[in-house]
């Protein structure tokens, strides 16, 4: 996935997924992490004492730690770990500002017949900002069992039930965690990154970043805690398993696909992925386009429609329908 060494401790004994610092259980299969052995020579009872005033202390639910009832000092204990996710690696930009700007012009000029003819010439670029959007990159082996209805083998009903199983590999699966970009934008960008070029997040911007690496780019935060992130990753793996189950279903039509996954050796990396976010204006209305940070040919955005052309098409359609209706009615008389 990346050249960055993983933070992982020893992998889980059951599913071989790497454990991270602070994990008490495997995030994939819930097997407890190996215990930290504390040696107690013989059974004994002891009183825990305040380091400040030496009084006996008890655990306080309010501060989630032992607190001295006399002097109020709190004893530090290990707390549950559920940190907010942070990017660890960065996929560098390969598209410089000028190329991104030119890509937008090319894209505007190729918006098709419905777009205004003057769009490429009259669109005014408001802003062009480099952004690293947040995403998880997942590698895992997945054993998938599935059930579905399809038209293969159907009798009186249009559907017949089928079941099966297969194994699949999720390699460099990019799961969007961005709040700024839409799911559609992220999904279209995700497939085209050269993840082999990823560098540690704190590496200098120009180190292995290519000549297109812009300064001052914003790195989007994940806005999700580790536990929530893992649930999202699991859902994404299941969604992928559903898509990959489709070719295994016999017949030409199907419905009700259900999958159950046994995920193995799941490694998750938190990445910052490059994109240019552009705001442009056409006749006082603002639009947004996102350009891939490594492939200038991938542009996702909204473009205005020419209202006259749309109205003309609707009118033409209505006229055609009216002519057909008149012809049909005339024939029936």
């Amino acid at each position: 996935m990346s050249a960055v060494p993983a933070v992982a401790l020893a992998p889980c004994g059951r599913c071989a997924s790497p454990l991270e610092a602070g994990d008490l259980r495997c995030a994939v299969c819930a097997l407890p992490a190996p215990p930290v052995m504390t040696m107690v020579a013989a059974d004994h009872a002891r009183v825990l004492r305040c380091r400040e005033c030496n009084a006996a202390i008890a655990f306080s639910p309010a501060v989630q730690a032992p607190r001295c009832a006399f002097c109020g000092s709190v004893m530090e204990v290990e707390q549950p770990v559920d940190p907010v996710e942070e990017a660890r690696i960065r996929v560098p930009f390969a598209v410089p500002r000028e190329e991104a700007s030119a890509a937008l012009r090319t894209w505007l000029a190729s918006r098709g017949w419905f777009a205004p003819r003057a769009l490429a010439a009259e669109a005014v670029l408001d802003s062009l900002a480099p952004l690293y959007w947040a995403g998880w990159i997942v590698d895992a082996r997945v054993a998938v069992t599935w059930t579905a209805d399809s038209n293969a083998g159907s009798g009186r009903s249009a559907w017949a039930p089928h079941a099966g199983q297969f194994e699949t590999q999720c390699a460099n699966l990019v799961i969007p965690a961005s709040r700024g970009l839409t799911m559609r934008e992220c999904s279209q960008l995700a497939g085209s990154y050269d993840l082999a070029r990823a560098v540690p997040l704190d590496a200098a911007r120009d180190e292995g970043a290519g000549e297109g690496s812009p300064l001052g780019s914003v790195i989007e935060s994940f806005d999700a805690q580790r536990s929530a992130a893992r649930a999202l990753v699991h859902d994404a793996i299941e969604a992928l398993a559903k898509i990959r189950a489709e070719p295994h279903i016999p017949g030409s039509r199907f419905r009700n696909i259900h999958v159950s996954c046994l995920v193995d050796a799941q490694a998750t990396e938190r990445a910052a992925l490059p994109a240019w976010v552009m705001a442009y204006r056409y006749r006082d209305k603002a639009y947004r386009a996102v350009i891939h940070g490594q492939r200038a040919g991938v542009v996702i955005g909204k473009a205005p429609l020419d209202a006259t052309k749309v109205a003309f098409l609707i009118l033409a359609g209505c006229t055609l329908l009216a002519v057909i209706a008149i012809l049909v009615l005339t024939r029936h008389r």
């Binding site: 107690v40 020579a41 013989a42 059974d43 004994h44 009872a45 002891r46 009183v47 825990l48 006996a56 202390i57 008890a58």
Partner: peptide
């Protein structure tokens, strides 16, 4: 009223 905790081998 001291709270004692048993530590066991």
């Amino acid at each position: 009223a001291s709270p004692s905790v048993v530590e066991r081998a």
